[in-house]
Amino acid sequence: MALAVLALLFERPMHPYELAATMRERRKEESIKLNFGTLYSVVQSLEKRELVRVKEVVREGRRPERTIYEITEAGKLELQDWLSELVSVPVREYTGFEAGLSLLPVLEPGVAVRLLEERRARLEQGLAQAEAAWGVAVKDGLPRLLMIEAEYVVVLRRAELEWVGGLVEEIRGGSFDGLEMWREWHRRIGDGLPMEAEEG
């Protein structure tokens, strides 16, 4: 949230309500974990750290006063450093799916195939929704520059969908390397034996 606030104030000074409206308009909640209820406290925290400052306080008609914030020079440096690291340095991200794959042998092969097929169906649905949202944004005139993260999500989902589909076909078709060992483990477990035969 703090990064998104700095990035928007880099564009122009805004009040918190305008910050939230712009994030929603650009669908930033799909790529950044946003909690709009904490927006004011995030802005106040950035102000305490002297990364943003009050530019002016305005009142329009009978509306309450609105405080307009702008980014400081220190804020611009922080934004550049933070973004540079996010864009240039790959970090190890531990996903739930990767953890599940690492423990896949616990499931019987047939069960694993069924669950992977469920994932494939959900991926197809998610991909269709992501492509539709991307299409709406393009139709609304948002340039690619402001939706590049949505494109990235679509590319990742397409790649995962293709990979999961291939994995399902390999297991189902019998060409998956280690499939017989996997089946044997479950036969032994069904017979009350350890997964691996004892030596000697």
Rank of each mutant, 00 (worst) to 15 (best):
K55G: 09
E85A: 12
V52P: 01
S102T: 10
R63S: 14
G96K: 00
A112V: 05
V154P: 09
E56G: 01
V43N: 04
E78A: 15
V106A: 09
E47N: 10
L19F: 01
R188M: 01
T95V: 11
V106Y: 10
G75V: 09
R158V: 01
L193D: 06
I189G: 03
P16Q: 02
G135P: 01
K55R: 14
S88E: 08
M23I: 14
M23W: 05
L193Q: 09
T95N: 05
L39Y: 09
Y94P: 06
L127P: 00
L3C: 02
V164D: 06
Y17N: 11
M14W: 09
G61W: 01
H15M: 03
F97N: 02
E60S: 04
P64Y: 00
V5T: 12
E85R: 15
A121M: 10
R49N: 14
L115D: 05
F176L: 10
E131T: 05
L156M: 15
K28Q: 13
L34V: 11
E160F: 10
K28F: 15
E47V: 01
K48H: 11
L19I: 15
L193I: 05
L6N: 09
G100K: 00
L3Q: 10
L79H: 06
V136K: 15
L9A: 12
E170N: 08
L6E: 05
K28H: 13
A112M: 07
P194T: 03
R158P: 00
K76T: 08
L156K: 14
W185P: 00
E118Y: 04
A21T: 11
E198F: 11
L145E: 14
I148L: 10
D191Q: 12
I71V: 13
L127C: 10
V164L: 07
E70R: 15
S84I: 08
V42T: 09
G37Q: 03
L101Y: 02
A159T: 13
M181D: 13
I32M: 07
L145C: 04
A159N: 05
